[in-house]
Design a protein around this nucleic acid. Structure first.
Length: 582
DNA sequence: GCCGTTTTCGGCCCGACTGTTTTCAGTCG
């Protein structure tokens, strides 16, 4: 039984308890225990003796978890399943419909599915119930109808596109003093469910009226004097968007509050409470007075709670509170630290632009160097290069280096690690390359041991510098390979192999959590690369940087922060050291 | 159910909005 399976059962139990009308603090205790299991560094089933170390896990939930691990289920959950129909928890996913509503509808009308709910709403059977009226019935009807098209999470890259369009429009409105996107987009998350904007204004009603009239607003969900919720459609991407309207004085507190995460905010409020304060989205209050303390900037808000400033990407309750208390928040990697991109494709394999075009675009971005890393011969779907073609490419690289000043193009490859574990080029060819990335593009469904061994053997080759997109996951499409990460990270440490944070918006691989684990537990070094297949792809480096920041990476952790000479020296050293070890 | 610099009970983050009520419950983030 893996941790995810335990989490799923704990969450199901919480859903059922919620529907059964159980004390809401008890319900959230189970959800909190679920989050603790999810965040834990060890496999729960192998360390049942350590359950009580997890925050929010006490005797009660520990007993439930033990039972889940030992029997594969929870007797409490099974009992509730016998008492309440199977379909009820599904109804919790309807917008604006919660446990109390669902339970009442079940008790009074026998409703156990979306179909039955739709029918009851259409027949007007809901409006007569105590506490329900025509409007509530209409809302329920819409929630069921919208279920099929309700907004799923969208990729960060798409959410950024929507946010930019909204920002562009907001700047044309009157009475807006200051504004920022907040929420999970500001925290740099790889996918986003909805957007939050915080706006400072002297005229909230007027701003709200202007917002709901913006051309991309498809639906007004609700509109008050401090909050407007709408659904927008920007070039076919539909998202829910909340706008929070506050005064200039309240702005910094509101920005912090709506940036979240929920877990981070809870920690902030607990701390404030211990210090005799109360925190709301508008400011900080003394327990014993009405006076509200406001802040010019977020850093002043943190300072008032005797905390160092925490960048949005770290606000997940993954150790940032402890770091801020001890003034040990790291200076995270930033855009200006990025000196060059070490993974991109050209016309030689499956890229859309020539080496020269890629070099000129990279120079335009201020880079010192790039590596052209076309695919290798076995990856025929991507027009992988034979050794002969690779040598031809070196001539063109030399020519571009002669003709385009101010940037250096390095000879590279993204070489396949073949299904049997062999590499696609022999050592004598690899020795002539400046940058060797080894990646898996086939045999992705092999078992854990086989896949792990393929990566480990690739890292043990002294000519391999980098493992490209190490887990192979593609967001919304496929999970990463089944891998033994401890074995892989240990090998990367022993061989000095660099692991990639691939900035393709569907990959972001390694992801934030694996980056943090690899850094904290193994002290590894990383590279952030776009894997660009065209000139515009070069700009997605920002997605890789926000992921790296969420993984707590700093400038020295990322080799793309090195200048050209230092980088080349570093790549050569890696080979020297490992040839000796071989 | 969890937890303790208000320690074994009594809180648990906090407020906006909506719809239904006539002072509040439910839902959401």
């Amino acid at each position: 039984m893996n941790n995810k399976q335990v989490v799923r059962i704990l969450n199901q139990l919480a859903d059922y308890l919620d529907l059964a009308g159980e004390n809401s603090f008890k319900v959230s205790a189970y959800r909190k225990a679920g989050r603790a299991v999810e965040a834990s560094r060890f496999v729960i089933a192998d360390h049942l003796d350590r359950l009580l170390e997890l925050p929010g896990v006490g005797k009660g939930t520990a007993g439930v978890i033990e039972e889940i691990v030992e029997t594969g289920q929870s007797s409490q959950l099974e009992r509730l399943r016998n008492e309440l129909p199977q379909g009820l928890p599904d109804l919790l996913s309807l917008q604006g419909v919660g446990p109390k509503t669902i339970y009442t509808l079940y008790k009074e009308l026998g409703i156990t599915s979306r179909e039955e709910l739709l029918q009851a709403a259409e027949l007007g059977r809901i409006r007569g119930l105590t506490g329900f009226g025509a409007k509530k019935e209409q809302k329920i009807l819409e929630a069921v109808q919208n279920f099929a098209q309700r907004s799923e999470r969208v990729l960060r890259v798409h959410a950024l596109q929507v946010a930019k369009e909204i920002e562009r429009n907001l700047t044309t409105l009157s009475f807006i003093q200051k504004m920022s996107v907040a929420g999970s987009l500001r925290r740099g998350r790889e996918t986003v469910k909805d957007l939050d904007f915080v706006i400072a204004t002297t005229h909230p009603e007027e701003v709200a009226d202007q917002i709901v009239q913006l051309p991309f607003v498809k639906e007004i969900v609700n509109q008050g004097s401090t909050k407007v919720s709408v659904v927008v459609d920007v070039e076919g991407i539909q998202m829910s968007v909340d706008f929070r309207l506050v005064t200039r004085e309240q702005y910094a507190s509101a920005l912090h509050h709506f940036t979240g995460s929920a877990e981070h905010n809870i920690r902030i409020r607990q701390r404030a409470k211990q210090m005799g304060y109360k925190v709301s989205e508008y400011g900080i209050f003394h327990d014993d007075s009405e006076e509200m303390i406001t802040f010019a900037e977020e850093k002043d808000f943190f300072a008032h709670l005797q905390l160092a400033y925490v960048p949005p990407e770290l606000r997940e309750d993954r150790g940032e509170m402890e770091a801020a208390e001890q003034n040990q928040v790291p200076t995270l990697f930033q855009q200006g630290d990025y000196m060059g991109d070490l993974h991109m494709h050209s016309l030689y394999s499956d890229g859309a632009h020539s080496i020269r075009e890629m070099a000129e675009a990279a120079k335009e971005r201020g880079y010192e160097y790039i590596a052209i890393t076309d695919h290798s011969q076995s990856l025929q779907v991507a027009n992988g290069l034979t050794i002969t073609e690779l040598r031809e490419q070196w001539e063109e690289i030399a020519q571009v280096n002669r003709e385009v000043e101010g940037i250096t193009v390095l000879r590279g490859t993204e070489m396949d690690i073949l299904p049997d574990g062999r590499l696609d080029f022999p050592d004598e060819v690899l020795a002539e390359l400046d940058v060797v990335i080894a990646s898996i593009h086939s045999g992705m469904k092999q078992d854990r041991d086989t896949l792990t061994r393929r990566l480990v053997e690739a890292m043990e080759n002294p000519y391999v510098h980098i493992i490209g997109h190490p887990t192979g996951r593609v967001l919304f499409k496929r999970d990463g390979y089944d891998l033994d990460f401890d074995h892989i990270f240990q090998t990367a440490k022993d061989t000095g192999t660099i692991l990639e944070c691939n900035a393709n918006g569907r990959r972001l691989d390694l992801n934030d959590e694996l980056l943090k684990k690899a850094k904290d537990e193994y002290g590894l070094t990383f590279t952030i690369n776009t894997d660009a297949h065209s000139v515009p792809d070069l700009s997605r480096v920002e997605l890789g940087i926000s992921t790296a920041r969420r993984g707590w990476l700093t400038k020295p952790d990322v080799i793309n922060s090195k200048g050209l000479d230092e980088l080349q020296e570093f790549l050569k050293e890696k080979r020297k050291k490992n040839r000796k070890n071989r």
